[in-house]
Every structure is written in C-alpha cells, then in structure tokens.
Write a protein that binds this DNA or RNA. Sequence first.
DNA 1: ATCTCAGTTTAGATTTAGTCTAAGCGCCGA
DNA 2: TCGGCGCTTAGACTAAATCTAAACTGAGAT
Lengths: 141, 141
Amino acid sequence: MARLQRQIVETMTQSRGLKMTPQRRAIIDYLQSAHDHPTADEVLQMVNRKFPMTSRATVYNTLNWLKQEGMVKEVFEAGCVRYDPNTEHHHHFVCRKCGKVEDVERNVIGKVKICSLPESQKVEVFEVTLRGLCANCQKKR
Amino acid sequence: MARLQRQIVETMTQSRGLKMTPQRRAIIDYLQSAHDHPTADEVLQMVNRKFPMTSRATVYNTLNWLKQEGMVKEVFEAGCVRYDPNTEHHHHFVCRKCGKVEDVERNVIGKVKICSLPESQKVEVFEVTLRGLCANCQKKR
DNA sequence: ATCTCAGTTTAGATTTAGTCTAAGCGCCGA
DNA sequence: TCGGCGCTTAGACTAAATCTAAACTGAGAT
C-alpha cells in the first residue's frame, strides 16, 4: 500500500519550506484515489471540478515536482504520457486492444535472471511490461 | 541480427505496390546503421544531410509506416519518443544518469516466472527495462 | 493594522512534436 | 505524348507542455 499519500507529501513539503496549497492538495488527493493511470489533462479536468480556475501550469508544476521527488512515475502507453501514483515497485499489464494499463504487483513476477550482462552496467531496478488481452477485451471477441 | 534491412523492406514494399524512393531509402539506411535509438527529429536531421529538402511529413510518414509493419518499434525513454530499428524481441537498459538506451539481447534475460496473475489476462509478450548506471557514467564518478 | 517578501497561481503567449492539406513532381504504362 | 497515381514538399494546423509577467496569499516584521 505504498500509494501516494497526502500526509507524507505534506510533511515532506514543509520540511523543504514549500507550501501545501489547496490546489496541490486537490491534485494529490485525486492522484491518490485514481486507480487507473491518468493523463495530465485528466488531472486538470478533475481538479477543475473542485477549483474551477486551476491553470494548466499549476497542474504541470505539481506533477513535475512530484515526479522529481519520486512520488509519481511517468509511463508512456496508448500514445500518451500518464502518471502513476503507485510508488511501490511494481509492473504493468497493457492490453494491446483497448490500451488499458493495469498494475501488476511486484510479487507476481518472480526473480528475473540476468545472464551475461557486461558487468560494467550496474542494474539497480527493473520493470516488466506484460502485453496481451485484458479480461474485458477477451470477453468481447 | 534481425535488424531493419533495406533489402527486406525493398522487396516488401514492391509486393504491395509501394515505391522505394531515395528519401525512404535514406531513412531506412540511417535507421539500419543507428545503434542508438534516434528520435524523429534526429532522423530528420540526418536524412537532411543527404537530401536537404526532406520534409518532416515524409519522415513521419515513413516512420509510421515502418512502425505499422512492425519493422521498427517506438520506445519512450528520457522524456521522448524514440525509434528502435531492432526488430528482434529484446529488452532495454536505460542509464538513469545520461538517459542512454541500450539494447539487451533476449537471451540475457532468463525466463520470467509469472505467478498468480488472474488467468483472465492473457500475456502474449513481455518486455523488461533494466535501469542503472551505464559503463560511461560509472567511470565518471 | 499595515508593510513586505517569497512563493504560488493565473491567463495567455510561446515552444515543440506531430498531423493534415493542397499543390506540384516524377515515374510508369497506355 | 498523355494521364494518373503515389510521393514529396511547404506550410497551416493541432495538441501537449513550458514559459512569463502580473496578481494573489499568507507569515513575519514594524
């Protein structure tokens, strides 16, 4: 359950002299509740329901800042950039038909054996992207 | 060695009534020789050295067409879309410092064990992205 | 209560990546 | 020689993201 948490972000920002404004709170709350992988535009639209005058710049500033701090990740699937609020190390399943991106928990993927990589490259983490047909698209055909 | 080959593309296009023009040849030759993962813009610039009036549209048309035919793949790393002329099933190593994307041959990654995935999801292929420090960046520090 | 200042937000301009379009070119076959 | 089709080109257009300048906000100092 290491999803993005407002509490954590809140204390983190204060220790750096940053302010937790209502807009930032709303963006973080939305990301925290989103179980798909929203695009920047979806974030903007959702936040605008609470704070109708929120500007694009604020959303991008906040997203980039969260990204730098490692609190969200960018993923590129289905032709556009998406934001992943799941900060736990995990993997993805992408449906080749509808393009939906689903999380795959870390323990679903067993150890990955790396043979004969030039030892000059130091691998720190790895990500696996599974591709295929999701449950829905399988039913349809 | 299943890298993009002009010969193959050439016969492939002829059988579909498409023409192998000098511009297309140049794009394919460049991709074939490129061992990094060029962006669309890099392709455009390189092709322009040979054919100074090549337009953006031609490059994007050709890249999209090669992509559709499965002769190149798109990868998103270091904040932008790149084209990968290696058509063999393989993986990537991305340097977290300089952003360089290197190919990792299929057999370097052993079998990936997938446990307890809801069997409603049918996995057809998988890709692994290794992240860490490349040889160069390791030397520097 | 007022002033000041740093950080934030806003609207809109700007930049960038990519697509679309209309006009012209060039090759091939009749 | 002519017609037609596909390709290329320049530039218009679109969408995503960044930048900018001005206004706003809240906390601490006066």
